[in-house]
């Protein structure tokens, strides 16, 4: 018997993997899933909107875009291009300003380096199987977007 250890991010692929492993004839008792705790001070992906521990990069942007959109459209009524064009210009610049302010604030607040990618290992699966099943299990895992795997010989 060997054990295959692999890591996944949360997605429906995990559950599809588990279902397919049963199809391959692997018993439920031979599969175990560990879920990883997140680092408590982890800088959340791009935008967590969870005000307890995270930051949001979209609040101020949407607020500024709306305010400047209203003002821009109103003033644009008097200008050559009219309210629509000026409204859009004002909204866009409001959005960018709000985003920039939030971004800079977030950056100074957490000096941590940004995470390299949005995909992150959060689940570890350990599968015990026979040596002659190794190939098909590995293929199944790769097909279902495992982030990495290793084989442990007992």
């Amino acid at each position: 018997m060997i054990e295959i250890l692999c890591v996944f991010d949360h997605s429906l692929f995990i559950e599809m993997t588990l279902a397919s492993l049963m199809d391959l004839g692997i018993e439920k008792e031979d599969i175990i899933a560990f879920t990883l705790k997140q680092r408590p001070d982890e800088p959340i992906l791009f935008d967590s909107l969870n005000y307890q521990d995270g930051t949001s990069l979209f609040d101020l942007a949407a607020i500024f875009a709306t305010i400047l959109g209203v003002i821009g459209a109103s003033i644009g009524f008097r200008l050559v291009w009219g309210p629509i064009v000026w409204g859009i210009i004002a909204s866009t610049s409001g959005f960018l300003t709000g985003f920039a302010i939030d971004y800079l604030l977030t950056k100074t607040r957490s000096r941590m380096s940004a995470r390299p990618s949005a995909v992150f290992p959060r689940v570890i699966l350990v599968i015990r199987c026979r040596r002659n099943q190794q190939n098909s299990v590995e293929q199944l895992l790769w097909k279902n977007h495992a982030l990495g795997l290793t084989v442990i010989d007992e």
């Binding site: 935008d47 949407a62 875009a65 305010i67 959109g69 459209a73 309210p83 629509i84 409204g87 909204s91």
Partner: peptide, 17 residues
């Protein structure tokens, strides 16, 4: 017309968040 900015950005904010 002046309902637009709040409606569009409100909807986008809601959808995204």
């Amino acid at each position: 017309l002046l309902f637009f900015p709040s409606l569009v950005f409100g909807a986008a904010f809601d959808a995204y968040s």
